[in-house]
Amino acid sequence: MTPHRTHRQRALADRERLITRYRDHGETLKALAAEYRVSDAWLKKRLTDWGVPVRGVREARLLHVRQRAVR
Protein backbone atom coordinates (compact mmCIF):
# COMPACT_ATOMS: atom_id res chain seq x y z
CA MET A 1 0.00 0.00 0.00
CA THR A 2 1.34 3.44 -0.93
CA PRO A 3 1.88 6.11 1.75
CA HIS A 4 -0.69 8.38 0.05
CA ARG A 5 -3.31 5.67 0.24
CA THR A 6 -2.54 5.04 3.92
CA HIS A 7 -2.89 8.74 4.78
CA ARG A 8 -6.10 8.99 2.80
CA GLN A 9 -7.54 5.91 4.47
CA ARG A 10 -6.74 7.38 7.89
CA ALA A 11 -8.53 10.61 6.95
CA LEU A 12 -11.53 8.68 5.64
CA ALA A 13 -11.66 6.63 8.84
CA ASP A 14 -11.66 9.87 10.86
CA ARG A 15 -14.46 11.39 8.76
CA GLU A 16 -16.71 12.48 11.64
CA ARG A 17 -13.79 13.89 13.62
CA LEU A 18 -12.53 15.83 10.59
CA ILE A 19 -15.98 17.25 9.93
CA THR A 20 -16.40 18.30 13.56
CA ARG A 21 -12.98 19.90 13.74
CA TYR A 22 -13.53 21.81 10.49
CA ARG A 23 -17.18 22.80 10.87
CA ASP A 24 -17.63 23.15 14.63
CA HIS A 25 -14.16 24.03 15.89
CA GLY A 26 -13.16 26.24 12.95
CA GLU A 27 -9.91 24.49 12.14
CA THR A 28 -8.58 25.29 8.70
CA LEU A 29 -8.71 22.94 5.77
CA LYS A 30 -5.01 23.56 5.21
CA ALA A 31 -4.06 22.63 8.78
CA LEU A 32 -6.19 19.49 8.75
CA ALA A 33 -4.79 18.42 5.37
CA ALA A 34 -1.25 18.90 6.66
CA GLU A 35 -1.95 16.90 9.80
CA TYR A 36 -3.40 13.99 7.81
CA ARG A 37 -0.71 14.37 5.13
CA VAL A 38 -3.20 14.70 2.29
CA SER A 39 -3.55 17.53 -0.21
CA ASP A 40 -5.84 20.48 0.42
CA ALA A 41 -7.64 19.70 -2.84
CA TRP A 42 -8.25 16.07 -1.85
CA LEU A 43 -9.63 17.03 1.56
CA LYS A 44 -11.77 19.82 0.09
CA LYS A 45 -13.29 17.28 -2.32
CA ARG A 46 -14.05 14.87 0.54
CA LEU A 47 -15.69 17.59 2.65
CA THR A 48 -17.79 18.63 -0.34
CA ASP A 49 -18.75 15.00 -1.01
CA TRP A 50 -19.75 14.65 2.65
CA GLY A 51 -22.04 17.67 2.37
CA VAL A 52 -19.90 20.02 4.44
CA PRO A 53 -19.92 23.62 3.16
CA VAL A 54 -16.32 24.64 2.54
CA ARG A 55 -15.44 28.12 3.75
CA GLY A 56 -14.33 30.70 1.22
CA VAL A 57 -11.41 33.03 1.80
CA ARG A 58 -13.62 35.78 3.24
CA GLU A 59 -15.36 33.41 5.67
CA ALA A 60 -12.04 31.91 6.76
CA ARG A 61 -10.58 35.36 7.48
CA LEU A 62 -13.64 36.45 9.47
CA LEU A 63 -13.52 33.25 11.51
CA HIS A 64 -9.81 33.77 12.18
CA VAL A 65 -10.40 37.33 13.37
CA ARG A 66 -13.23 36.22 15.67
CA GLN A 67 -11.16 33.40 17.14
CA ARG A 68 -8.26 35.75 17.85
CA ALA A 69 -10.62 38.21 19.57
CA VAL A 70 -11.85 35.46 21.93
CA ARG A 71 -8.31 34.55 23.05
Rank of each mutant, 00 (worst) to 15 (best):
L29Q: 02
P3Q: 07
K30R: 15
W42M: 06
G26T: 04
D24K: 07
V52G: 03
I19W: 10
A11M: 04
M1S: 14
L29R: 03
D49I: 05
Y36Q: 00
A41T: 10
V57K: 13
E35S: 02
R68M: 07
R46S: 04
R66T: 12
R66F: 13
P53G: 03
H64C: 03
R15L: 09
T48L: 15
K45E: 12
E59T: 10
R10E: 13
L63I: 08
A11P: 00
D14G: 05
G26W: 04
A41G: 06
R66Y: 09
K44M: 08
L29V: 01
T48C: 02
E16T: 10
V54G: 03
W50M: 02
L32Q: 08
L63Y: 06
D14W: 06
P53K: 02
Q9V: 05
E35P: 01
V65T: 08
H25Q: 15
T6G: 01
R17M: 08
L43C: 04
V38S: 00
A31K: 04
A60R: 13
V70C: 08
L32V: 11
R46N: 06
V70L: 10
A60Q: 15
M1W: 08
A41D: 11
R68F: 12
T2F: 03
G56D: 15
L32F: 11
V54A: 03
A34V: 11
L63H: 15
E27G: 02
L63A: 14
L63W: 14
R21A: 13
L12M: 14
A31D: 14
L62K: 11
Y36G: 00
E35Y: 01
D49R: 10
K30I: 12
P53S: 05
D14N: 13
H4F: 12
I19T: 05
R68Y: 04
R23P: 05
S39D: 04
Q9M: 13
